[in-house]
Amino acid sequence: MSLLEVSGLGISFGGLRAVEDVSFSVSPGEIVSVIGPNGAGKTTLFNMISGIYRPGRGSVRLNGQDVTATAPHLLARMGLSRTFQNLQIFQEMTVLDNVLAGYHLTERGPVWADLLALPSMRRRAAEVRRGARDLLARVRLDKAAEQEAGSLSYGALKRLEIARALALGPKILLLDEPAAGCNAVETEEIDHLIAELAASGIAILLVEHDMKLVMRISSHIVVLDHGQKIAEGDPATVSRNPAVIAAYLGTDAPTEDPAHADG
């Protein structure tokens, strides 16, 4: 059974139909990519699924439960986590504290225990701290743990967002352009990381402009153009689809990559 089921999802902004009647599903361990030209509605779609925008039409089901327009913090409790295209980092906190914030649901307790620093909180805090450092090591940021997050490079912040999203132990992870602004080596690392996460049973929904990355790791691709789904299928099928080639890949597709690589 699929973990995430999006059916007939749509939203309009002041009469403009930003996303219209989009349906697809994601199963555990699967990597589903959403691609399409700039302004196709990919991020808007993400914002509806993750509860930031309230969809005008259609429904989102998570684990069989209707979660359409559920608040983001409640979706997090149900195992949905995400990263952002335009970084949303807690800039003035340390790198470690950013990841620790991701453990909020695990480590939160009664407020008086926090105010009085009760010893009962300390053991859990130590466990969570170990987990956070492991996650940082996984995205190769362990050496920067005590630095202020705002001092990190763009690529490092992208990885930090992934670590923070993983901290809540998600069942499904929405990644919005995780490789944007990363060099070739970093992109390959993210590629491996995503494959690893999927192999561990996490469902991945990915928006990415790096076509090589998308074609290499996706099990299923959904193509959007002008807010509508124009094609879907496995990478080979999608890349041969004439509608997709016309709308997105075009004839001069190879020049797209360098343009976005320095994003």
Binding site: H73, F84, Q88, I89, L100, H104, A167
Partner: peptide, 18 residues
């Protein structure tokens, strides 16, 4: 941490369950 996190980014704080 939750308070400082929402100070930094409300939307990101919400997506980690705050």
């Amino acid at each position: 941490r939750a308070m400082r996190a929402l100070h930094g980014s409300e939307v990101a704080a919400a997506t980690v369950g705050i």
